[in-house]
Design a protein around this nucleic acid. Structure first.
Length: 818
RNA sequence: GCCGGGGUGGCGAAAUGGUAAACGCAGGGGACUUAAAAUCCCCCGGGCUUCGGCCCUUGUGGGUUCAAAUCCCACCCCCGGCACCA
């Protein structure tokens, strides 16, 4: 049922009319010429959606509307706003869906894109449909491949065999980021370990810059913090422990470890190697070989699965070998255990059970010695440890270093002592690892590399791009670890671009995060088919002014986009190195307290709501529901508020007079303009809407008729939230052209926001006992005098001694009595 | 365990040191109407009241201040993310 004829305001009629006019007039789109010559530009970006078969849900609309309000506001202030949208349509989501439904992704994606486009138009987003992007279109992925080649030529793409996470259900390699607690993030199947030759981008060469730049960019704190944690810088030392021979004699070999606590080296009572550590063979004594190799095999099989799950009791095996603890001069046993991970540090640790929780647990399990080397304030050297102590304290049982404060001084002293002996040096370590971009899948852009027996891997020459993804009916991955494209001989057989010999194409495709890692560079340049991005247009429009998106992409997408931008900057493609000047994370819309998901059956579909109330009401409602950066729980019913508000606004404009504005009403209008103007740029949407409602209530109080000059500013302020009705009312107020053209955002006069008189609260001992009204500018003494004269105040003050009077101008008087 | 965000009426929330609960939903009463919708007005945290007011109330317990939802200390609970990172 649609609320059509109410009061003459028909949302569907108004919205159809303006969506049609926007399209006919090109209100929201820019020509190439306009982009090339625009002044006062504002690039308003939001995260482009993955076009699922289900269509947009309320969570998507929430995010896009919040970003659209921001863009429309910027435009109303007179800026030239570029607000593009596109489709992130490659990847495992589409491929899995296609496999399940038996529809080829090449057929599925276009129909999903059409549906998304329809929905996005219907909600009234200010999207530039002339500059849209679809990552699966060869005209886009041609340039994704070109980006790969830029890194390849710069030596930043490297092919190496590496242990990778293998999902036996999805039959593909997963990035570490896609592994949640040892399981595939998509299907929750336990992940195995495999070794495959793959392409990596050397993001680790940019670690320090990615970290340092975080200080300079205006991003949500939570997002910056997440990035910084992900990079995971830790300061410590690289130490070398000499390996002892069978008779306890010194050998040439050392076990290298990374530790953040070199100050605790006197407490290192054993060593642990990761099971796959290359030195395992060398240090293992013959008598221990059988259990050691059995353990190693077991670990390899279950590797990423059980290894990263907490609360698992520690397991491990003694190798029979020993190292020298260079600090104590004692021989200490070498173990292998799966709690030490090959991919972090050196894959080996010095175990200090007294002061590391994990080592303590392991030592307790296997009866290894636990030595205290740090004493807290209440302890001495001999107090036994009931658990690992990692707090502050002074060194004990540490030879000449006893008594030094453990962390700052002892750490420095011991590190330089070891350094002088040639046994170590300070080192910084990072958690971040190189970005594996190979996917043994079908639905992605082929990696543009050709393997030649004599020339090795050769990049596809730029003039041969794109390497088109062929239509393959059987694209189901199998567990051979090889991409479905490896079954298409006529596709992969080719000749070497360098020597002309028979050669073979790379049959892996690239990670979806590569598609989405540069799309914002493409948008303004989609008019060019001979370059990824035009230099002049890029310089004019980028970096992005505001990027709004979900915090679920805080680490991966945003990190990769920053990395690619830095690389392209270093290659001289443009002169900025951070792509997003401002990033704001929007909150999450939940329903019945949980994230919307198909499996939980709590997805809210926007289309019927829009059909009933209109896009304007729906947008207003979503923005009014709570703070945009915090999100909120979707609930039915509340939509009546915004719906009624738009009806009253409509009604007020229809009946508006040409009378001069009322002074009190005008003050309210100026106060509202001030408040909304201050709050909208900070995404304070819910309070802005509340202020506008309050303003309309004042304008209509007692059923009075508004004057045009009172109501017109309100129509403009509503426009970012409810653009269709705003256009219509703007026109009905006698204006021509779009409300969004010409910078019509109202300005306020500070002087007109204040009244002649103000209300002052009167407190006695901090409790409010009355309020008085005084003229603005009344001297303090007079205000205090009238406060004292208030009947109720006088009752509380009499018979008491006045100790102090606090006066806060324009706010309150507080009598302190006793 | 670590990092981030929260905890305020029946509900979504507002207030970031100065009159707690703005704005809205739901609920109750009234005006207009043949009727309904829409619109407008009034009430709406709890308790007491001689109807003037008084007392209590922002997860819990302490503290700072003339004054605390807001700042400090300790703790409890909820949501999101990361997690054997040495």
């Amino acid at each position: 049922m649609a609320h059509e004829e109410t009061d003459g305001y028909s949302p569907s009629q108004v919205e159809e009319k303006w969506q049609r006019l926007w399209e006919e007039r090109g209100t929201n789109t820019h020509t190439r010429d306009e982009l090339e010559n625009a002044e006062d530009t504002f690039y308003n970006l939001m995260m482009f959606p993955y076009p699922s078969a289900e269509g947009l849900h309320v969570g998507n609309i929430y995010a896009f509307t919040g970003a659209d309000v921001h863009g429309r506001y910027q435009r109303l202030t007179g800026k030239t706003v570029f607000e593009p949208i596109g489709f992130d349509a490659f990847g495992i989501h589409s491929e899995n869906f296609a496999l399940k439904q038996g529809v080829h992704p090449m057929d599925l994606i276009p129909s999903n894109v059409r549906n998304f486009t329809r929905q996005l138009r219907r909600v009234g987003g200010m999207f530039d449909w002339r500059h849209t992007v679809d990552t699966t279109d060869a005209s886009y992925y041609k340039w994704t491949q070109w980006i790969f080649l830029q890194l390849f030529d710069a030596g930043l793409a490297e092919r190496k065999e590496a242990p990778v996470n293998w999902c036996p259900s999805c039959m593909t390699v997963l990035a570490n980021e896609q592994v949640i607690a040892g399981a595939c993030e998509r299907c929750e199947t336990a992940v195995e370990q495999r070794r495959i030759a793959q392409w990596f981008f050397k993001i680790t060469e940019y670690t320090q810059r990615l970290l340092e730049n975080l200080e300079q960019i205006d991003w949500s704190d939570s997002t910056r913090k997440a990035q910084s944690n992900w990079i995971g810088r830790s300061e410590g030392a690289a130490l070398r422990f000499p390996i002892l021979g069978a008779e306890g004699n010194a050998t040439d070999g050392t076990i290298d470890v990374f530790t953040t606590r070199p100050d605790t080296i006197f407490g290192a009572t054993y060593m642990v190697l990761a099971p796959e550590h290359p030195l395992v063979d060398q240090v293992t004594d013959d008598g221990y070989a059988a259990p050691v190799f059995a353990y190693r095999e077991e670990a390899a099989r279950q590797d990423m699965v059980a290894r990263k799950i907490e609360d698992k009791t520690k397991t491990g095996v003694f190798t029979g070998g020993h190292c020298l603890n260079p600090a104590t001069g004692e021989a200490i046993p070498i173990w292998i255990a799966d709690y030490v991970l090959m991919e972090y540090g050196t894959g080996a640790i010095m175990a200090v059970p007294g002061h590391d929780e994990r080592d303590f647990e392991f030592a307790t399990e296997f009866d290894l010695p636990i030595v205290r080397v740090v004493a807290g304030s209440d302890d001495d050297a001999d107090t036994p440890l009931a658990e690992a102590y990692s707090g502050e304290g002074r060194l004990v049982n540490s030879g000449d270093f006893d008594g030094l404060p453990a962390k700052p001084d002892g750490l420095r002293a011991i590190t330089s002592w070891l350094s002088e002996k040639g046994l170590g040096e300070p080192q910084v370590n990072y958690r971040l690892h190189d970005w594996c971009i190979s996917r043994q899948r079908y639905w992605g852009p082929p990696i543009p590399v050709i393997y030649c027996e004599t020339c090795g891997p050769v990049g596809v020459p730029e003039e041969d791009l794109p390497v088109v993804l062929p239509r393959v009916e059987d694209f189901k991955p199998d567990d051979s670890g090889i991409s479905p494209l490896a079954r298409v001989e006529e596709w992969y057989k080719t000749v070497c671009p360098q020597c002309g010999a028979d050669a073979r194409r790379e049959t892996d495709v690239s990670d979806t995060f590569l598609d989405s890692g540069w799309y914002f560079l493409r948008y303004p340049s989609t008019d060019f088919d001979d370059r990824a991005f035009d230099h002049d247009i890029t310089s004019r429009w980028l970096p992005v002014d505001t990027y709004i998106g979900g915090n679920e992409h805080a680490v991966l997408h945003l990190m990769y986009a920053r990395f690619l931008t830095m690389v392209l900057h270093d290659l001289g493609k443009f002169d900025f190195e951070e792509p997003f000047t401002v990033f704001r994370a929007h909150g999450l819309i939940t329903h019945d307290g949980a994230k919307m998901s198909k499996s939980k059956g709590n997805v809210v579909v926007p289309d019927p709501i829009i059909a009933e109330f209109g896009a304007d009401t729906f947008r207003l409602y979503l923005m009014f529901l709570g703070p945009f950066e915090e999100g909120g729980d979707y609930r039915e019913g509340g939509i009546q508020g915004p719906f009624g508000f738009l009806h009253r606004l409509w009604d007020t404009v229809q009946n508006a007079s040409d009378d001069p504005a009322d002074a009190d009403v005008e003050r309210k209008v100026h106060q509202t303009i001030k408040q909304v103007t201050e709050q909208i740029p900070d995404l304070g949407y819910n309070t802005s809407v509340a202020a506008m409602m309050e303003c309309l209530n004042t304008i209509r109080a007692g059923g009075r008729t508004a004057s045009r000059s009172e109501i017109e500013p309100l129509v403009v302020m509503v426009a970012p939230f409810a653009p269709h009705i705003a256009e219509e009312l703007w026109e009905r107020l006698g204006n021509t052209g779009s409300i969004f053209d010409g910078g019509h955002w109202p300005s306020f006069d500070e002087a007109k926001t204040v009244a002649d008189t103000i209300k002052v609260a009167v407190q006695v001992n901090g409790k409010v006992r009355g309020t008085i009204e005084v003229a603005v500018g009344t001297p303090e003494a007079d205000v205090v005098a009238s406060a004292r004269a208030d009947e109720n105040v006088a009752r509380h003050v009499e018979d008491k001694t006045e100790r102090r009077v606090i006066y806060v101008e324009g706010r309150l008087v507080n009598f302190v009595v006793s």
